[in-house]
Simulated assay, not measured.
Amino acid sequence: MSHRHPDQLALWDVPEWLQVVGVFDLETTGVDVTADRIVTAHVGLLDAEGGVIRARDWLADPGVEIPDGASAIHGISTAHARRHGRGAREVVDEVVTALRALLDAGIPVVAYNAPFDFSMLKYEALRHGVPPIESPSPVIDPLVVDKAYDRWRRGKRTLEVVAAHYAVRLDAAHEASADAVAAGRVAQALAERFAPWLPTTVHELHTRQIGWARAQAESLTEYFIRVGRIDPDDRLDGRWPIR
């Protein structure tokens, strides 16, 4: 992302939501949103230049063993989480509260592959008796937006790869705060790159992403069936931003 003086942004027809965005990311015990647990979380705010103006991090004791494979990704062991983490219910409650405050204020929250993080948070909230965020809005998912506007670009679409494509620095991948901030900056880079084609309001963008995500899941399903990766009767879940 280009970090220009704020006055220069007026020269570009960028959407209004670029001025301030929330960012959200989780690191977890695994990838099953209904059964796995939150280990670390980050919720923050970025200004129009991608600068961090507010940030909060959490470390939870998930109450279960953290598999070695997960620890190898995010660097948090079971022993470390038990020694230094706070109670899972308390962490989940505070993360939900922080996100709800942003969404209720109309501030869009950026989450890369949003259905993973928001669904994981929903099921953790239900597990701990915390009222969940059932229909988060407005949400911006750079993965969905990037696929919609640059559909035919080859290669992986992991946060690391997409951040590099848009010249966004990501020094500590799979660390919640670094991933959250990078995702926010990728969203801002997308807004600048594709400004002439983006909706003018974040609520319209949110609505369009629902359809884009569904279509992308259907397309990927057909590809996986064609290459024999899944059975013809199986379908990828295209619900967005929460499953």
Rank of each mutant, 00 (worst) to 15 (best):
A191W: 01
A172D: 12
R193Y: 11
D179F: 13
A105Y: 01
P108Q: 05
R169N: 08
V162T: 09
S119V: 15
R153Y: 02
K156P: 07
H174K: 04
V144N: 00
W197E: 04
H84R: 09
V181W: 00
A195S: 15
I140N: 01
E175H: 07
L121F: 06
M120R: 09
D146C: 13
L159T: 00
F118N: 07
A81D: 12
L190S: 02
D171Y: 03
A111Q: 04
Q188F: 02
A180M: 07
S137E: 10
A167L: 08
G155S: 10
E134F: 04
G106T: 04
A81T: 13
R154G: 11
A172I: 05
Y149C: 14
P196M: 03
D146L: 06
A114H: 07
P138A: 08
V110K: 00
V96W: 04
M120T: 11
A114F: 05
R127S: 07
H174A: 09
V130P: 15
V202H: 05
V91E: 08
R82D: 15
Y123N: 14
P108L: 12
F118L: 15
A195Q: 14
E160M: 06
E94D: 14
R157Y: 05
D171S: 11
V96I: 11
H84C: 07
I140D: 01
S135P: 15
D141P: 08
R151F: 11
P132S: 04
P115C: 03
T201H: 03
L121R: 06
E90A: 12
E94G: 15
V144F: 00
L102P: 02
L99S: 13
K156I: 01
H128M: 13
R185N: 13
V92C: 13
H84M: 07
A187R: 00
R157W: 04
S137R: 07
L126G: 13
A111W: 01
P115R: 01
D93P: 10
L143H: 01
M120A: 04
F118W: 08
S119T: 10
Y149D: 14
E175Y: 02
V91I: 14
R169H: 09
D146M: 05
L103W: 07
